[in-house]
Amino acid sequence: MLTTKTLTVDDARTELTEGIEALEDALDDLDEDTDKAAALRDRKGTLTYWRNGLDWQTSEGDWTADTELTVGAMTAGEEAMMHREVPEQAGQDELRLWYVAASVEAAPFVEDELEETFANVAGLHPAVVKWLEAKANGLGTASDEGNGSSKSSPAT
């Protein structure tokens, strides 16, 4: 992995809630009918969806607030190896599951074999999968200052 980040479900919920609140504050200062306001409402909806998915995973699934997840940004080689495992006919949603299975180093659903981890990821709430995908993507996003993920907020 290029870089990793470990957080608990509670940490993730806090981060998402802070992002939602920041977006609400920003929306208070904008005219509702602007494109910027629409974009912020969309982003707020996404963060709320992800947080609700984590809530579901802890209330209906087997995670707790203390469940730890270690998400990583794959190297080019790791990503290539993941693509070896992906079936040719896989669509975008299935590819997302493979990506998350390969990007998460430690979590309750991680197994020794990628195929087993993939099967476990398929049983997660869709919002959690999309959140984990976004986390991994954020960790792998290069910037002029190096990896920008440590400085980014969920609102950006």
Rank of each mutant, 00 (worst) to 15 (best):
A80F: 13
S143N: 13
G140Y: 06
A142T: 11
L7C: 12
P154R: 11
K5N: 07
M74V: 13
N52E: 12
T17L: 13
A12C: 07
M74D: 11
E32T: 06
D25F: 02
T8C: 08
E15G: 06
L132I: 05
H83W: 15
T14V: 09
S59I: 01
A155I: 09
A101V: 11
A107V: 00
V129T: 12
D62Q: 07
E113V: 08
T156K: 11
V104D: 03
D31G: 04
M74F: 07
M81Y: 07
E68G: 07
L16G: 02
G61R: 05
E94I: 08
D62M: 02
T34K: 08
T17W: 01
T6L: 04
G146H: 06
E133M: 09
T117N: 00
N120E: 10
G138K: 11
E116C: 01
T156W: 12
P154W: 00
L132E: 07
K130C: 05
S143V: 10
G146W: 07
L97W: 06
D55V: 03
V110R: 02
D62R: 03
G61D: 03
S149A: 15
E78H: 14
L95A: 09
W63S: 02
K135D: 08
K130Q: 15
E18G: 12
A76E: 12
T156L: 10
S150Y: 11
E24Q: 11
D28Y: 03
D62L: 05
G148N: 10
H83L: 15
G91R: 01
R96E: 14
W131P: 00
A26N: 11
A102Y: 11
A90Q: 10
E79L: 03
D28I: 06
A12K: 03
A106G: 02
E105H: 15
T64C: 04
N120I: 00
A142E: 12
M1D: 08
W56F: 03
T17G: 07
A155C: 06
T67N: 04
E116S: 04
A80W: 06
P108M: 01
S103M: 13
A65L: 07
D55Q: 05
F118V: 04
F118K: 03
E145D: 14
G148Q: 10
A106L: 05
L114D: 02
V104H: 01
D25A: 15
Q89C: 01
M74T: 06
G77I: 14
N52I: 01
A136K: 13
D31R: 09
M81C: 08
T4H: 13
T3H: 09
A22G: 08
T64I: 04
E21G: 09
R43Y: 02
A142N: 09
A12N: 08
R84S: 11
R41K: 14
K130F: 06
S153H: 14
A106E: 15
R13T: 04
V121T: 01
A136W: 13
Q92E: 14
P154S: 15
M82I: 13
T48V: 10
R84K: 14
G148W: 02
D25R: 13
R51Q: 11
E85H: 13
W56H: 04
